[in-house]
């Protein structure tokens, strides 16, 4: 029997956990060093690099842009995704599996290819504005999360509750808004959070879709990193980790983190 205190199992697990955590802790430490380049162990202590993060216009503008795009793309994915999931789970749609695959199809295409194709097909050929195309790309990234999570909870929800509302004279729309939505609320929030985090963190889709006045935070950091090697990147890493932790805390308070494991 393989026990929890099996020496080999414990040793490997400890090493793997160290491998997962230690690098992140090390980055946090390097953000406070006084040397002009990243050094570990650090010398001295300063908060200068955090101030320097906010002195980078690309980072500040990128953060705002990433926030806006992530919010807009997540909402758009819900607005388009929830009705189609409703149709697929509550109506007798022909070729249901085929539709399901269609709506999950963005996951079959490598993200960098989506960004590349959108740039070629929409920006160059159709002359769509860059910002709109960026939003479309992030919407494509988000839609499959909505389809998967909301479908799962619509299937689990008892259809009879909705039917009861219709019997008592409620319209289909009113029943959906007042009965169905509250019942699938948890999956809607979880889908929104997953969309938001993944859009906010995404690089490959935004890669081709940036211009002189349009840069997302991750691509801005990537650009900065290609020309500089100073603890500013460590400092913004710390801020991004705090951001992740805040998001996790928010989900934990609302739903429990298990909701995010259903990716």
């Amino acid at each position: 029997m393989l026990k929890a205190n099996n020496k080999v199992l414990v040793t490997i697990s400890a090493i793997v956990l160290f491998f997962l955590i230690a690098p992140l802790i090390m980055v946090i430490i390097t953000a406070f060093g006084t040397d002009a380049t990243i050094a570990f162990p650090i010398h001295g202590f300063t908060l200068h690099w955090f101030a320097n993060v906010f002195a980078q216009p690309d980072f500040v503008a990128g953060f705002k842009m990433s926030l806006i795009i992530a919010l807009a793309a997540s909402l758009l994915a819900l607005v388009i995704g929830v009705p189609l999931v409703y149709a697929l789970t509550r109506y007798n749609v022909h070729h249901q599996a085929w539709f399901q695959t269609l709506f999950l199809s963005p996951t079959f295409i490598p993200e960098i290819v989506i960004g590349f194709a959108l740039y070629q097909g929409l920006v160059i050929t159709v002359q769509l504005p860059l910002l709109l195309t960026l939003l479309i790309g992030h919407f494509l990234l988000c839609l499959p999360y909505v389809v998967r999570l909301v479908t799962a909870s619509m299937v689990l929800m008892d259809e009879h509750i909705e039917e009861a509302a219709w019997v008592y004279g409620s319209s289909r729309l009113k029943a959906f808004l007042t009965v169905t939505i509250p019942n699938i609320r948890a999956s809607l929030v979880a889908a929104f959070m997953l969309c938001f985090i993944n859009s906010f963190n995404n690089i490959p889709i935004s890669l081709f879709l940036n211009g002189p006045d349009l840069s997302m935070l991750p691509t801005a950091i990537l650009n900065y990193l290609q020309n500089n090697y100073d603890p500013t990147v460590s400092a913004i890493s710390v801020l991004l980790m705090l951001f992740t932790a805040a998001m996790m805390l928010l989900v934990e308070k609302g739903l429990g983190l298990k909701a995010l494991n259903e990716m």
């Binding site: 690098p23 980055v27 570990f40 906010f200 950091i221 990193l225 460590s234 890493s237 991004l240 996790m248």
Partner: peptide
């Protein structure tokens, strides 16, 4: 936590 942390951050650790 790492899954939800930006990939740039996670790769940057290995540059260091």
């Amino acid at each position: 936590f790492p899954i939800l942390t930006n990939a740039v951050v996670r790769n940057f650790t290995w540059i260091i």
